[in-house]
Simulated scan of single mutants.
Amino acid sequence: MAGVPERNQSTSLRRALAVLDHVRDNSGLTLTRLAEGVGLSKSTVLRLTAPLIEARLLERDHRSGVYRLGHGTLRLGQAYLATLDLRAVAAEESHRLMTEVRETVHLVVHDPPHVVYIDKVENETNVRMASRIGSRGPAHCTAVGKAILAFLPGDPVEGLELESRTRHTITDPDRLRRELAGVRRRGYAVDDRENEPEVRCVGAPVFNHTGAVVAAVSVSGLTSRITAARVRELGPRVAAAAARISGKLGATT
């Protein structure tokens, strides 16, 4: 674009990106409908789409003339996903959640039959949680573990050793299956003094671009602060934070 003023280049780029976004949201558009959708003339749209087609970001059917995304967008998406780091992606939402609820936030991944704590954002004004980054915990009696188990394929309870950690730990396989069904219905899991006697946790699953559960995020605190009534308020907040992290990982639902 040598010789083209910088302002004109910037305007053309913004218009081309608007065209690309519109095709993304409305695949199968003719030139006329695409021009109407972005509020530009057909000749301008033809000019803007030419380099997008060359870069394989757009395709135009030779017979029908309709536009759709090209396979170059897939390569871009794959390259983006390959560079994602779960901790980095989740960091902003984890800190935001801690600020909202003023309780410790954990991020974990599944390493069957355990969960592994890979990040922790602690509210230092409260009593510190004993967990540490790199430590492992049982999946069946932690909120993060149950949040992951609930969305695994097959029967995630089969073969699990349901060790009793407190008098509240669920050790009956069928009862745990019912508990996981409840997690799927409401979108978050609860550890009600099941792993530590004086601690309650609320956790929600994190999904990747394929829809697979890859992690979980949770809020933890002493039962004096996280009462049974407060769990109902925290649940949707934790689930919303997990959903935002999932969106950054490419999940669509």
Rank of each mutant, 00 (worst) to 15 (best):
V19M: 03
I226Y: 13
G247Y: 09
E59Y: 08
M98I: 01
E93H: 15
H168D: 09
V238G: 02
L31N: 01
L52V: 10
V206E: 06
L84Y: 12
T223G: 11
R184C: 02
A215V: 07
D155M: 06
L46K: 11
P156E: 12
T30E: 03
D25Q: 14
E59S: 12
S27E: 06
G39F: 08
S64N: 14
R24H: 04
G203Y: 11
V4G: 05
T253I: 12
G250D: 04
A88M: 09
T223I: 11
V217H: 10
R68G: 05
A204N: 14
K146C: 13
R232W: 10
C141S: 10
G39A: 04
P138L: 05
L20V: 05
H168A: 13
A251C: 08
R200A: 04
L58S: 09
T104Q: 01
L249W: 02
A241R: 06
T210I: 11
V157I: 14
H62D: 05
G77A: 09
T83W: 05
V217A: 07
C201L: 03
H95P: 03
L107F: 02
L48C: 11
R96Q: 03
E158W: 09
A243T: 00
Y80Q: 13
L29C: 02
S135A: 14
M1R: 11
L160V: 07
A143G: 07
E54P: 08
A242C: 05
A90C: 02
A35N: 01
R15P: 01
L81K: 13
L149D: 04
A239N: 08
T210E: 14
S94A: 14
T83R: 11
I148C: 10
S224H: 11
T125M: 07
